[in-house]
Design a protein around this nucleic acid. Sequence first.
DNA 1: TCTTGCAGCTATAGTCGCTAGAGGAATTAG
DNA 2: CTAATTCCTCTAGCGACTATAGCTGCAAGA
Lengths: 150, 150
Amino acid sequence: MLTIGKLSEATGVKVPTIRYYEQIALLPEPERSTGNQRLYGKAAQDRLNFIRHARDLGFPLEAIRELLGLSDDPNRSCAAADQIANRQLRAVNARISRLIALRDELQRMLQQCSCGTIADCRVIEVLGNHEHCAHDHHEGAMAELIPPSM
Amino acid sequence: MLTIGKLSEATGVKVPTIRYYEQIALLPEPERSTGNQRLYGKAAQDRLNFIRHARDLGFPLEAIRELLGLSDDPNRSCAAADQIANRQLRAVNARISRLIALRDELQRMLQQCSCGTIADCRVIEVLGNHEHCAHDHHEGAMAELIPPSM
DNA sequence: TCTTGCAGCTATAGTCGCTAGAGGAATTAG
DNA sequence: CTAATTCCTCTAGCGACTATAGCTGCAAGA
């Protein structure tokens, strides 16, 4: 039986995140010790590994919930799971191609910057004027690619 | 002079987003008409285009705030702007390589799925068991790549 | 045994970058 | 003049955490 800290270490999921997963019912409420501390067994560890892994692969929690629901009922067709993975693959491919266009533009911007004063800074200029753009990252649908953090 | 709706149309930034930018002081408070409606001039439009463009390139608002601060002082060196853009480029590159690993994994997963019942579905298995992974998306720093939406 | 200090507990609020809704006032089209 | 649209402010919600406050529990050293 693992305490939450040990489970965190074992899976690479942070302690508050584990509690958060419990709160949103992605993990079941675990046993408690006499002193009210959470105690986890192998099943919980497997489940959390599954979640961690799926998160790493970019699945949103709702998709993971769906996948866990499927795997809890192993006689059902896996077509649904397949479909989720397919949907995710398409999303990933789209994000890759947008990011590549974006990278090219950033590189171009940086190459043109002679690093003098702001007055003739290409970075500022390119950002300020869309005419300087090589790519059309102006046509909507771009919002998806913006990262949660830098 | 443009109303907020016209400015929105002209820049492609949604109306509530413009108000939000004003709220967080990324845009200055504009003039108002007699009926208390916001009125924007060319300067505001340029500034908003700058923001829009930088957001498209994935810059977080704080970086944009910094860039706007720099461009207000055109005699300073543009090294700082360059550095911000470089940081962003590195972040983008990191995300690309992780996404490519991710895509490969998803493709592998889908190829192995024989689409019978869950019992022999590789999708669930691969996600649940890290041993099946071709790539090392297990070593931290992965959190960044997770998308805001699917 | 005592104490120190870390780990755990609950609950709440904050993060980022918006987005949605309520409930009104102003402007514009017909 | 009316009706539709746009605008206003304010508040709350999203996803997926993360941080803080103010406790209690527990293991190891003196």
